[in-house]
Each structure stands twice: as C-alpha cells, then as structure tokens.
Design a protein around this nucleic acid. Structure first.
Lengths: 216, 216
DNA sequence: AATGGACCAGTTGTACACAAATTTGCCCCC
DNA sequence: GGGGGCAAATTTGTGTACAACTGGTCCATT
C-alpha cells in the first residue's frame, strides 16, 4: 500500500489524540514540537499540521512563545457537551441506521467477550481503550457521515474527563455497568432493533454523566 | 486591539470559507496557494494552515502535485447532512437555550427589516449572505458551544449546494418564504418561546430541502 | 498512425533557518 | 532585602528553498 502524506498526517493525529485521551499527556502538559518531530522521525512542519487539527478540535492550545498545552475542559462546557452527545446517541438510531449485518453481530459479541474478561481483571486504561473502541462501533450503526464524525469528535473531547474521574469511582462497578450495556446492546442488535440499541446507549451516556457529576 | 497569529488565521479561514460558500470559488476550482498568499500579503505557510482547516471541514481537498480543489458534495451525503441539520435545529430550543435579551429581539427585528428590503429587490447573492447571517443568529439562541459549532460547521458544508440550486428555483418565492420564517421566529422570540423559534427553524430546514430536492 | 517513454511546467509536501513572543533568572539599584 | 529591568533561553510563527509528485506534451520507435 502506498503511504501518502495524508496517511502520515492521520496516523500522527490519531496517535497524539489517543495519548491525550488516555492521559499519557494529562491536561496542562506542554508538548514540544521539536521533541515530537524527532520521535516520529519527521520535521516540525508535518507535525504542526497534526497539532493544528488537534487545536481545531479543542484538545490542545498553542500559544506563541509559550508552547502547545493540552487543554482542560471546564465543568460547565463538559456538562453541555455531554447533553449534546446524549441526544446524538439517540439520533444514531433514527437517522439512516445501517443495516445489521452478521459482521456487526459478531463485533458486538466480541465486545461482550472482552468486557467479560475485563470484569475478571479490571484495569482503568484497558477499560478506557475498550470503551473507545466500542464507541466507534456504536457510531458505525448509522450511515450518516456527518453524525458519525460529530459524535466521534465530541467523544474525544470528553473522553479524558471521564478517565480522569475513574480513580475516584468504583472501577469494578463501572466495568460491570459497561458489560451490562454491551450485553443489552448486543441483544437489541440481534433482534434487529437498532433504535433500541441507540436508546440504550443514550440512557447509559446520561447515567454515566450523572455518576461522574456526583463525584465532582 | 492586538492582532495575534490566531486572529489572522481566523480571518483567512473565514474569508476563504465565505468565498467558497458564495460560489466565488465554485466546486472544482483550483486554488493556488501562492496566488492567495500574495493576495493576502503573507507567505504560503499561514495560508496553508487555513486551507488545512478548510480541508478538515470538507470544503476543499488538497492533492499532492495536483492542487487544492474546491469539493463538490454528492447528493446522498447532502441529504443525510440536511437530515442531521434539521435535528440539530430542534436541539437549539431544548439544550440550554440562551435567555432572550432585548438585544436578541432587536436583532430579530433588524433581520425582519433586511428581509423586507430584500423582497423589494431580490438578489441571490445578497439573499445568501443574509441567510448566512441569520443562521448565525439562530445558533446564538443556545449556549451549548458544541451544538453551536457543529451546526455552523454543517451549515457551511451545505450552504453552497443551496445557492447553486437557487437559479433553478423561484427567487422571489424563496425570499418571501424566508421573510415569513424570520417574521414567525421574531414573533416566537418576542413571546419568550425559544423552543417555538427552534421548531419553526426545524420545519423550514426540512421544507427547504424538500424544495431543493424537487429541483435536482 | 499509434504507442511508449522521457522530459517539462506547475503544484503541494517537507525541511530548515530565522523572526516574534514569552518566561525565567540574574543583576543592579534603591 | 526588595523591586525593577534587562538579557538569555525556550517556544511557536513565518518565510523560503527544495523535494516529491502529477499531468501534459513532444518525440522517437514500431
């Protein structure tokens, strides 16, 4: 396969985004363009393009003469973003839902297995990663590109706040809830009910935020 | 006021976006980085950052060795984007609606005046510009930043398709419908009903797309 | 005449050097 | 001892030269 400049940009962007959202770079971290460029074996120019995209997405903030800082979301904006995400989750079931293929069912079952394993060995980071993958699976249930892109964009904006609060919460309980959500969604999809699956997700986003808010 | 690099970037981005959406650069136009840089009295570097943002928003597409081309949206994606926009318009009334200040009422009345003037001298380009400004006004009725940003992003993605279809439609009739919409929304806001205003917008987005689809 | 290849003009992508801006630490002065 | 200011170090922003790539043209060959 060819490796176009765009592919390289997307990889850079994806890697940095994941590091930010998994708190490898906690809020307030100062990212060095030069150091990152050296790490990825490139010059500052392509790296800056990836950082520019992250800045447009609100994950970092570059200030002339100071540095590129990983942002922190204030509680008010996060609340409103979560409300928005909740509504978007419902739309996934209503706007051009994707046909439920055997592959989708297989993926759902795979996630159910992973969640079961996670219950036996809870781990915050692995939990976050699985949550991220399952979110992508959820957005793939609609064929509406704009809805998908928007949902993912907002997910990555709130993901790290969630992971940041995990230490103050009951990890085992959260994993159990997550496993139940996956099981219910798998069941809904097996009966051909995309709308039902979307409503379950919507409910869980709402409740997840409520638990999060109770800790803050 | 100071003129930070970010201000310059935002201006560049805004100007180019407006040119694309008002069809000064119709779909397929090849933009020259060097020519634009010369026009704005800067080098390619800052200009490329603005183009990169436009590319992330889906308004242009840069191809190595070929050029930066203004994109054209296919009918299927536009349909789905319009459906999404319709739902977002409804959310403006439900998610943290902004308090209705006298300033908002004044703005609404101003738009009503502008629309009345436009009825006496219909002009496609001026229509498009007023429509754009009124859209921004509409998103300002919610305090949910994410909803506002998303709505605007999607508006600009579909705006030029609408303007492109105007020549095949009855301009006077469209202006009249627009003027009625503004009047109804102004009335709803004067009676303190943000939700009502949002529902009117939702209805008009839906009907606008239906008329658009009938022409295609 | 058709076809293949090499060259050429033009464009975006990358690297690097330098400018602009901010922070920090130090020194000097009061 | 404290405060102001200056300069150096560090960082992002900008300009520019060059590399990589594409599309078209022209010419040679079959």
């Amino acid at each position: 396969m060819s490796d176009t400049p765009r592919d390289r940009l997307n990889r850079l962007h994806q890697v940095l985004r994941e590091r930010i959202c998994l708190l490898d770079y906690p809020p307030g971290t100062r990212l060095s363009e030069e150091a990152l460029a050296a790490e990825f074996g490139t010059s500052r120019t392509p790296l800056r393009r990836a950082l520019a995209r992250l800045e447009d997405e609100g994950l970092v903030s570059s200030v002339h003469g100071v540095g590129t800082l990983v942002t922190d979301v204030d509680i008010g904006e996060m609340t409103r973003t979560y409300e928005f995400r909740r509504e978007l989750a419902g739309l996934v079931g209503r706007l051009t839902p994707a046909p439920i293929t055997p592959d989708i069912i297989a993926q759902a079952r795979h996630f159910e297995q992973c969640a079961t394993q996670l219950r036996h060995a809870p781990d915050a980071r692995e939990f976050a990663r699985l949550n991220m993958e399952f979110f992508h699976f959820g957005t793939s249930l609609t064929e509406n590109e704009a809805l998908r892109d928007t949902s993912e964009r907002l997910y990555y904006k709130t993901a790290r706040i969630w992971l940041k609060s995990i230490p103050r919460m009951d990890l085992s309980a959260e994993v159990a809830i997550f496993a139940d959500e996956i099981r219910d969604i798998r069941a809904a999809l097996e009966s051909g009910d995309t709308m039902g699956a979307a409503l379950i997700r919507q409910a869980h986003i709402s409740m997840c935020f409520a638990r999060l808010h109770a800790q803050a």
